[in-house]
Design a protein around this nucleic acid. Structure first.
Lengths: 235, 235
DNA sequence: TATTGCCAAAAAATCGATTTTCTCCTAAGC
DNA sequence: GCTTAGGAGAAAATCGATTTTTTGGCAATA
């Protein structure tokens, strides 16, 4: 049996849908027509609808009775809300993890950090691998937090936030040194300095969010301009 | 059109399943056979499975590929995890709510408190109404928290916790004065004393959890005893 | 010109039947 | 007596068809 094979069609299409929504392949605010999705993922209506319903509870899909499913819209307000909430949860989990972390935890953090650093130094824009290792690093840092439910909540928020990060993929390379930001968290964590680590994590998340905000503003401006041009050409 | 009518069968059976799981009507760790549920809720397989899949994402149902759905087991470990995480989220939301609360917020809190107090003083064991008003009170307290996502997370945790509270329904009347506990939070909140309010809320949640722990221990002891008796009778 | 009512096409929701996969019991073999 | 193979029945997963609801356009009306 293949380890990766989903035991169920629901499971498989659920994961693929999830990825596509978080990555922005399925556009925010767009309609998810059952017939189109059936074709896209090559599954029947039943497993598809079941997968969609799972995503509804995660906030990654919106269901409107008798009017089908939609990708949730994005907004500056939600980004800010999500960012602040994620900071709250992530710093709390990080703090508890640092307090409770064993030798194994340290090992895991070291591995994740170096693995991520290698990719970052290589400078690949390849977001696939990068995003995975980035996530793994953040998770490794928090993994010793004894509150499992807190970690679950964080995962949820991280993925909701991921939809916004996807907007700005590749954009922050120029302005920021992500490696330094990660290193600051890393050093403080291994040094068991929870306050410093949390502050570094907070800054790191905030900076990422700011890049996204900038990008959203740019996009809004572009939309404005196109609208203006449209008016002119119609006049 | 009836305001309360679910626009969709999925929605309707989702709510009913949810209630029954949280209330403990559907027993922890039991199997949820599609055919039985179909009969119980008088719906077809498709809406039923869709509703179940929503609950899977909320952690109120477990899905095992090709082996159907189950009510999640309960455990002392999870209770403690859930309790501490809920305290964390609820006190944070409460703190921010107190800081940001407007006059309207105060009004809402006053109404919710008195409404709950009336029920409590009446001493009905009726959990239906009581639970609803209790929830409403807690929500009113936090409602001015600007982080909407934090409130959503709280709701999720509150309901997961509800499964445990259901175990001890009616049991805490003897030992505790719930009214006083609520009043302490109420007074501190309206007095804009966030620290005191958070501490009171923390104590309140902890006390409830302790009653549940006690009850779980009792049940475990009873099980032990029955097992012993079984052994004897078989011998 | 704006509004309303109606109809056909499209889409969503749901059902009933089929296929696939597990479960448990029986019996043969060690 | 214990383990393992086989198979019938039960249950889960999925599909295809049906029913219900919405959408969008067009014409009639104010």
């Amino acid at each position: 049996m293949n380890e990766n094979a989903a035991p169920t069609l629901v499971e498989s299409v659920y994961r693929r849908l999830r990825e596509d929504i978080i990555r922005g392949v399925l556009i925010a605010d767009s309609k998810l027509r059952i017939s189109e999705l059936r074709e896209r993922y090559d599954v029947g209506g039943s497993p598809l609808r079941e997968a969609l319903n799972r995503l509804v509870s995660e906030g990654l899909v919106i269901s409107i009775g008798q009017r089908g499913f939609h990708v949730p819209p994005i907004s500056l307000d939600e980004l800010r809300d999500l960012t602040e909430t994620r900071i709250l949860i992530e710093t709390e989990a990080l703090r508890r993890s640092i307090l409770a972390g064993s030798d194994d935890w340290e090992d895991g953090v070291v591995v994740a950090f170096h693995s991520l650093g290698r990719i970052e130094r290589r400078g690949d824009i390849d977001s696939e691998d990068r995003e995975r290792r980035n996530r793994a690093f953040h998770q490794a840092l928090m993994s010793a937090c004894p509150l499992k439910k807190l970690l679950q909540v964080h995962e949820e928020l991280y993925d909701l936030h991921g939809r916004y990060r996807a907007i700005a993929i590749g954009l922050d390379m120029n302005r920021r040194n992500l490696f330094d930001e990660h290193e600051a968290i890393y050093n403080a964590a291994l040094g068991r300095d929870a306050d410093t680590a949390c502050e570094a994590a907070r800054q790191h998340i905030l900076l990422t969010a700011q890049v996204v905000e900038q990008r959203m503003a740019d996009m809004a401006a572009q939309r404005e301009q196109r609208k203006g041009a449209g008016k002119l050409s119609r006049a």
